[in-house]
Design a binder for these strands. Structure first.
Length: 881
RNA sequence: AGGCACGUAGCUCAGGGGGAGAGCGCCACCCUGACACGGUGGAGGUCCCGGGUUCAAAUCCCGGCGUGCCUACCA
């Protein structure tokens, strides 16, 4: 045990450093699949290896840590499975940038060398975020840390791919996909983020082949006209019912284009004539297929016009647009242009404008998988919290489209498909030696890798050793809860649902808790470009990790974004300091050995604090279990500061300082130690560091606080009578303090006190607690004023069970007291006005539940009682003027 | 275009049919032997607007206004 002496203020930096290493050394984070305890498991949303801890991570992992630490204390065998994600495009970008700084490209290195280079990068920098999570206090089982590219997970990926392929749920095909010309890869629909862009709507004339005149077509992407293979109109459009001929000439290139008729074309938009570019637009592609049109791809992988573009070949897509518009204008073919606001896809990694391009890719046929994932939530096998997200989930799962999983990058799981010269495609778990069709041995492996989210989708079971049948899977799958932000509900959660059900036969988690986004104090999304990011590491430096975590928990109300600002964290830093000082007080009193002695009858405040602790522990537990982290944090805050510190510690000073009764003192010291130990345990899930530090210093504790039981207390400690009695005492003390404050009597000045209890029970309680009242309200010896005979010249306060008098002679002027009483009366009047009105309402008396009516009556009666006493006092005061 | 949230104290928000709450900030007094990152007391609100349901609406319903977000291939 370390010394009991504490510094006056808490220094988090010094304390935090100590305990994380201790927990790890003691193996307290390690989950035992053989444990007889019930299982509780969470898989971490794996941060990108390229990641730096940001507010989102901090919130997300704080919540998981609160759940895990609480569950351990509550008697569960907890597995919090950690790891990182290989983040294909992001990581490749980072390493490519590094190469660029050396004047190289990945192509200079070649695929193998490049991948080696990425692994080197990961070895050097990849662990950064893990250390940052440790800094946050995350109690993950690091002995099981996984990486989506490690061997085990790669095996799972290959297994899943092959099985899906064998079942026809993965196929290869030519479709329009989203292409990022900067990353040089296909993207899934989700990875193309739609953003509003100011563009133009250009009206272009397509001259008839031989007849005079032209068809006017409206487009937002004039450069794609190079790939047009038809112009379409609606068959029912009267404007085009009779055309001079059914062929037009493509402007600039002069190619002949058929005019086709298709109901898809809207008669409302533009001119009702639509240019068809099957290789660069998903709808045009479908129309092209239907009408057997050729597809001409006119942009290369970098977004430059290719050879098909004739005179424009080699121009960048934006440059080409500009030049072509000039040429059209010059040729009199640009009829007009309008400003046009529309939303277009951007690469979610690099924000480059995405280009729809026809290309051969691998797809997952998600329909059947989604149907099961949808059903699982509908049937409640997985519960989404808060429920409103279920609707979003349902909508997406219902309208889901096939998932393009191939990426033309190098860093990732290479697709286990091989091509034979004979045209055979072989998909296999192991590298095939010969073509099963022709026996040829010249096989080349697919160069594409899989979407990173493909491997993340397997995370809940691949991390536990699947496809092997492991004890971990048996004990910890399905996981208990997934904690994540809504931004990856589709990317990740939905896909884990599909894969988990498909390959494990059971949902991957029973609860999904969707939390909010952390924004800045103005409610703006934090982003580097806006420069409004608050770095969690800096916050932890400035305020301490515990204060930061507590702030996150306290602000994490369901369904609302969190606006983070320094001042709020400072408030909770003060709370941490308050706890530190409560510990100073406690430890000072426990410094000397507590003498053995006969158990003393517990004091009122002791019965009260244990009763309250039990209630609060239950309240906090329930809130955590229902993911109401803010309620949990606020309950702890309110109790620790405003009940434990403000009242219990203050009240306990009496017996603790009283050397005249050693047995009594010893008993109070024991209760103090016990109560404080429970406070620390209540705090531990939120504030792991300071709670451990103080736990270790608290006499009588053993081992880490992590292994201490949740302070549920014992039913025998429930003591509503103590709670009610102490409330009476507190009310009397508050009343005296109020008079003091309002009357401008200095805090140091002792005042006389007289009480008129209205019932015997109250009199007994107050008599027993007279000493406490005297010291906390700073009054002279308690006097009793008989009912109906109040002390002369006294300020008074009317409570339900007692009237409080502070005889004022020589202390204050009566005008002030008159004003104070008037104010009090007015306040009571205001308070009961609505009730009085209700009681005058026949409808209320007839229809409202009896107990509600009774409550209103009691409320009014009590207030009127108080008011009568106050008026009496007012009259007396006035009589002295 | 559809969908989903949210408008409550100066600020940030909790609450959710029967007594308007918290934190921070503000005012006054106080370095009382845990704590000035503190103590005690206090001020401060048409619960966005308009209708409706109800004995009773900040709360439920409808309609506005405002804000934010998500989804979407009408060029």
């Amino acid at each position: 045990m370390t010394s009991l002496k504490l510094d006056k203020a808490y220094d988090p930096a010094q304390v935090e450093r100590r305990w994380y290493a201790y927990w790890e050394e003691q193996g307290l984070f390690v989950a035992d699949p053989a444990s007889p305890k019930p299982a509780y498991s969470i898989v971490i949303p794996p941060p990108n290896v390229t990641g730096q801890l940001h507010m989102g991570h901090a919130l997300n992992n704080t919540m998981q840590d609160i759940l895990c630490r609480y569950k351990r204390m509550a008697g569960y065998e907890v597995l919090w499975m950690p790891g990182t994600d290989h983040a294909g495009i992001a990581t490749q970008n980072v390493v490519e940038r590094q190469l660029a700084a050396e004047g190289q490209s990945r192509h200079d290195l070649g695929r193998e060398k490049f991948i080696e280079r990425v692994w080197e990068w990961r070895a050097e920098y990849g662990g950064k975020i893990i250390n940052q999570l440790k800094r946050l206090g995350a109690s993950c089982d690091w002995s099981r840390e996984r990486f989506t590219m490690d061997q085990g997970l790669s095996r799972a990926v290959r297994e899943v791919f092959v099985r899906l392929y064998e079942e026809g749920l993965i196929y290869q095909g030519d479709y329009i996909i989203n292409w990022c010309p900067r990353c040089h890869t296909a993207l899934s629909d989700l990875e193309s983020e739609h953003e509003e862009v100011k563009g133009g709507l250009y009206y272009i004339r397509y001259p008839f082949k031989s007849a005079n005149g032209y068809l006017v077509v409206a487009t937002t992407r004039p450069e794609t006209l190079l790939g047009d293979t038809a112009v379409a109109v609606n068959p029912d459009d009267p404007r085009y019912a009779e055309l001079p001929e059914d062929t037009v000439l493509l402007p600039l290139l002069g190619r002949e284009l058929p005019i086709i008729r298709d109901a898809y074309v809207s008669t409302e938009f533009g001119t009702g004539a639509l240019k068809i570019t099957p290789a660069h637009d998903p709808n045009d592609f479908l129309i092209g297929q239907k009408h057997n049109l050729p597809s001409i791809r006119v942009l290369d992988d970098s977004g430059r016009v290719n050879a098909e573009g004739g005179p424009y070949a080699g121009l960048d897509r934006f440059e080409a647009r500009k030049v072509m518009l000039e040429d059209l204008e010059a040729q009199g073919l640009l009829e007009r242009q309008e400003d046009y606001l529309h939303s277009v896809g951007h690469c979610y990694r690099c924000k480059t404008l995405v280009e729809p391009i026809l290309s051969k890719q691998w797809f997952v046929k998600v329909g059947p998988l989604a149907a099961e994932a949808l059903k699982a939530v509908q049937e409640g096998r997985t519960k989404i919290v808060p429920v409103q997200w279920e609707k979003t989930y349902f909508e997406w799962m219902t309208n889901i489209r096939d998932w393009c999983v191939s990426r033309q990058i190098w860093w990732g799981h290479r697709i286990p498909a091989w091509y034979c010269a004979c045209g055979q495609v072989i998909v296999s778990r192991t590298t095939p030696q010969a073509c099963p069709a022709c026996g040829g041995r010249e096989l080349t492996q697919e160069t594409d890798v899989l979407d990173t989210w493909f491997s993340s989708a397997l995370w809940p079971f691949s991390t536990m050793g699947w496809p092997q049948d492991t004890p971990e899977l048996k004990k910890f799958y399905p996981t208990s809860c997934l904690v994540t932000g809504f931004d990856i509900l589709f990317f990740w959660v939905a896909r884990m649902m599909m894969m988990g059900i498909k390959f494990m036969g059971r949902v991957p988690f029973t609860d999904v808790y969707i939390h909010a986004l952390v924004r800045d104090a103005q409610g703006q999304k934090m982003s580097k470009s806006k420069g409004n990011v608050i770095d969690p590491l800096t916050v932890m430096d400035d305020f301490g990790t515990d204060a930061f975590r507590f702030t996150l928990a306290a602000f994490a109300a369901q369904g609302r974004d969190i606006k983070m600002s320094q001042e709020r964290i400072a408030g909770y830093r003060n709370f941490v300091n308050k706890i530190w000082n409560a510990a100073r007080f406690t430890l000072m009193n426990l410094e000397e050995a507590i003498p053995e002695g006969a158990a003393a009858e517990p004091l009122l405040e002791e019965r009260w604090v244990l009763s309250r602790l039990r209630r609060v522990a239950a309240e906090v537990a329930r809130a955590i279990e229902e993911y109401r982290f803010n309620d949990a944090a606020n309950a702890v805050y309110q109790f620790v500061w405003h009940e434990f510190c403000d009242w219990y510690l203050e009240l306990s000073k009496g017996p603790l300082y009283d050397r005249g009764d050693p047995a009594r003192q010893a008993a109070s010291r024991r209760v103090l130690g016990e109560a404080f130990s429970r406070v620390l345990r209540l705090l531990h899930p939120f504030m792991p560091f300071i709670s451990e530090e103080l736990w270790q210093r608290l006499p009588g504790t053993q081992g880490s606080i992590m292994t201490a039981p949740w302070p549920s207390g014992d039913a025998s400690e429930d003591d509503p009578a103590a709670e009610a009695d102490l409330e009476l005492v507190m009310a009397v003390i508050s009343a005296v303090r109020n008079i003091r404050g309002e009357m401008g009597i200095s805090p140091g000045q002792e005042v006389p006190l007289a009480l008129t209890p209205h019932e015997e029970a109250a009199r007994q309680v107050l008599a027993a607690q007279a000493g406490r009242i005297q010291s906390l309200a700073k009054t002279g010896p308690l006097a009793w004023a008989p009912e109906g005979a109040p002390p002369a010249k006294a300020a008074g306060a009317a409570l339900a069970r007692v009237t409080v008098f502070v005889p004022l002679e020589g202390l204050v002027d009566f005008a002030a007291e008159e004003a104070r009483l008037d104010k009090e009366l007015a306040k009571l009047e205001r308070e009961i006005a609505p009730s009085v009105q209700k009681l005058a309402n026949q409808g209320f008396l007839a229809k409202a539940p009896a107990e509600v009516v009774e409550k209103e009556r009691a409320k009014v009666a009590e207030a009127q009682d108080k008011m009568a006493r106050l008026r009496q006092n007012l009259a007396r005061i006035q009589s002295f003027r």
